[in-house]
Design a protein around this nucleic acid. Structure first.
Lengths: 346, 346
DNA sequence: GTCTATCGTGGAAGCGCATTCCTTCGGACG
DNA sequence: CGTCCGAAGGAATGCGCTTCCACGATAGAC
């Protein structure tokens, strides 16, 4: 039966056991342009199996000059937004003989550059950069520079939701989604809006605010800047931003939080303040995070097919890129009206 | 300034530019036992910088005979349980010059074996296996066998929450936690319990049911098997299981779902059925998933420090293992009483 | 019958690096 | 002033694999 050699089994061991040359063993195991006689191939495969041979991927990478590693860099893998994207990437990678290396920057943009360097060291064939870029210039410049180098080394780079990078991009239509949401909310009869915006430096957050304002504008409604409160892109950020708004809540009939996580924080803050949603106030989020679908009242939001975003990014990154003109894949959100907004005009 | 060479820069390029030998360049960049004169070192570092040199990790791995890759295999990265663990791992890995390769098995145990083989091919120095083992024998045997081979190759393996594997393990005290929860619930005055159990093959689920039954037993309460309903370990599984129980819900005053996700599904099912929680029925979960903390009413549950679980696993896997006797790190949960159970006896 | 394609196989080079073994040089000591 | 020793630099080897090239054999063309 299978033996248990100490240390790794090499191709030489397999070749020796099969009584063939290194070249033949290699060809038999990995198939190549050259054919190998059936008998020899069988012998090699049998030898490999009985020795539990697993080709040294490092050595293969060296010899071939390319790897089967793809990097995925997210802000925070614990955030359902990113973990959903990651799931999409993993699913798309399935069966492609590709290994995904994960980077989690904990929202520190400079870590992104570090990961890019590390992945270049790994000679990753591609990298997916998920997460909205902060427009912090020095870091952004460093990132752009490192992306350049990475691409020069022959790697593909795909960004998710950040049009300002000169690479293939999966664009999430934040602006459009927010605009549609605004239109829908106005359609429900809401008129006086507050917005819980994320950090101003996060482009995704900014786009959603812009889109929302645009949508309102089309209906002839002005968004009073005094009712736009910034906060962290998190549950607690939403809670705090909502709390800040609570003093003048009487002047509002609906609040839009730029993502679901913030919306949930806001919902709690509202409840703590004795407000009942949607009776006293409408509330809407963005993303349609599945884990959050069962909060009560259910959140009106914009559904984003995040797994599809991840899958698209993966496909993009695995297909040959034409550096001269970055490709773009647009992914739209869809307004989902639920109980956190009333269903008819009052 | 920095130039942009086409293709990868090699150590030879750096050495040439610095006017030193390969050996010196290597020693200057990676520091070794041998010293390098200050002037030469400076020259080498400058050359590396100006060429944007990033050492080829594959080549280093070959030459050194070891890599800095660690594998993390989870059931489903989109599941907050696993993404929290992953976050813990990533955080612990931070600054350790280690790259984490992610595997997501989509709950197909045989994929776990595949990942293990792939990671062995990468010569990963270690692998973390997160997720409860199904006790599906043929697959379990294959896994055990592959783990053996992996360890024979010199890799460390750490399992999370599955005592039955002969490797270092981070044990989550599911049984104990469930027991404590049962005790607490009885303390609140509940007497007639139903359980939404997960798939019987998932050990984590099974342990929690056992523990819960034990806890009840200590209070002299019997858990009627008729009130233990099995379902998928998901939100929908919880919804279905709860629905199945609804027919005889009058005989119950509290339901324990073996994880939070199921509990949330159950909550929705109960609500749909016109039940108000906790007035008509108490409900408790397990895990204390942070994304789920704001459901209404807030879930009584057992808090698990999942990030710490991930971090512990990483520490374990990075420290030398003594194969003769697997180490164990136990992590306890803590009962958290919230609004989904009433606060006093009726 | 010889001469040229074709195919299966083996030999060997080389991927980029760490590291061992030599060589050289300078200084300290007798 | 000669010898010895340590320290610093360089040449060369090998990690495990792919692949180019060479070679012998077989088959087809003339």
């Amino acid at each position: 039966m299978a033996e248990q050699p100490r240390g790794s089994v090499t191709l030489m061991d397999v070749a020796a056991r099969a009584g063939v040359s290194l070249a033949t063993a290699s060809r038999a195991l990995n198939g190549s342009t050259r054919k190998v006689g059936d008998d020899l191939r069988e012998r090699v495969l049998a030898a490999a199996r009985s020795l539990n041979y697993a080709a040294n991927a490092q050595a293969q990478a060296m010899a071939r000059g390319r790897t089967n590693v793809v990097g995925l860099v997210v802000h925070d893998i614990a955030d359902p937004y990113f973990s959903s994207i990651a799931a999409g990437v993993m699913e798309a990678a399935e069966g492609q003989r590709v290994l995904v290396t994960l980077g989690s920057t904990l929202r520190r943009p400079e870590r992104e550059v570090d990961y890019l360097v590390a992945l270049r060291g790994q000679r990753s064939r591609a990298v997916i950069l998920a997460g909205s870029r902060m427009d912090d210039s020095p870091v952004a410049d460093a990132l752009r520079r490192e992306i350049d180098i990475f691409e020069n080394d022959g790697g593909n780079v795909v960004a998710i939701s950040q049009k300002q990078l000169p690479v293939d991009t999966v664009v999430i239509e934040n602006r459009l989604g927010a605009r549609d949401l605004a239109t829908s909310l106005v359609g429900l009869g809401y008129r006086r809006f507050g917005v819980l915006a994320g950090p101003d430096a996060v482009l995704t957050a900014r786009d959603r605010v812009h889109g929302f304002r645009e949508g309102l504008g089309r209906s002839g409604i002005d968004l009073d800047p005094a009712f736009v409160v910034h906060g962290a892109f998190t549950r607690d950020g939403g809670h705090q931003a909502m709390s800040a708004l609570l003093g003048r809540i009487g002047e509002l009939d609906c609040v839009f939080a730029v993502n679901d996580v913030m919306a949930v924080g806001a919902m709690v803050a509202a409840r703590e303040h004795g407000l009942e949603i949607p009776r006293d106030l409408g509330l809407a989020g963005f993303d349609d995070i599945s884990t959050l679908r069962d909060v009560n009242p259910a959140l009106t939001t914009v559904r984003l097919p995040l797994e599809k975003v991840g899958a698209s990014a993966f496909e993009l990154v695995m297909s040959a890129a034409d550096r001269t003109k970055p490709r773009t894949r647009r992914i739209k959100g869809e307004v989902v009206l639920r109980q956190s907004t009333r269903t008819t005009a009052p």
